[in-house]
């Protein structure tokens, strides 16, 4: 078996308001902004935690692909509003402190830090676009 030299580089998360999403990831979660291209709604912003330079989140418009039909675009917009579309899992050593700070910023809380039946502790928020941001505790 050949060994591949791959790493996880970028994962996309959709935004509906690029400035609002940028403010959340940069100012509330403390991510650094690695790239910011485009204007208006057509903006692609690459962010990531300072301690993890090799992996980024790309905040992107939800349905920029011209192959997406208007109906599909509308479905995606509905799912984003319903909160059933995008999600991501982050991790931290200090779950309670992180939760306090994110909650204090006024973000929508979905779940307070709680022990899950499988033995992990995690919490969950929504980012400005309705994506679910789950944060689990590293032990």
């Amino acid at each position: 078996m050949t060994t591949m030299d791959l790493s996880i580089d970028t994962t996309p998360l959709p935004h509906t308001d690029p400035d609002a999403s940028l403010a959340f990831y940069r100012d509330v979660l403390g991510f650094e902004v690695r790239k910011d291209v485009g204007s208006g709604k057509m903006r692609w912003i690459t962010v990531g935690p300072p301690g993890q330079p090799g992996t980024s989140i790309l905040l992107a418009p939800p349905a920029a692909d011209p192959g997406i039909t208007d109906d599909e675009r509308h479905t995606i917009a509905e799912m984003m509003a319903k909160g059933t579309f995008g999600w991501i899992m982050l991790a931290t050593k200090d779950l309670d402190g992180t939760f306090e700070r994110v909650q204090a910023s006024g973000a929508e809380v979905v779940q307070e830090p709680s022990e899950q039946p499988w033995g992990e502790r995690d919490c969950a928020f929504r980012d400005p676009a309705g994506n679910l941001v789950r944060i689990r505790e590293l032990r």
Partner: peptide, 12 residues
């Protein structure tokens, strides 16, 4: 969309 976001907050 406005309604759906409100419903999402209720569900959350």
């Amino acid at each position: 969309l406005g309604n759906l976001a409100r419903l999402r907050r209720v569900r959350d």
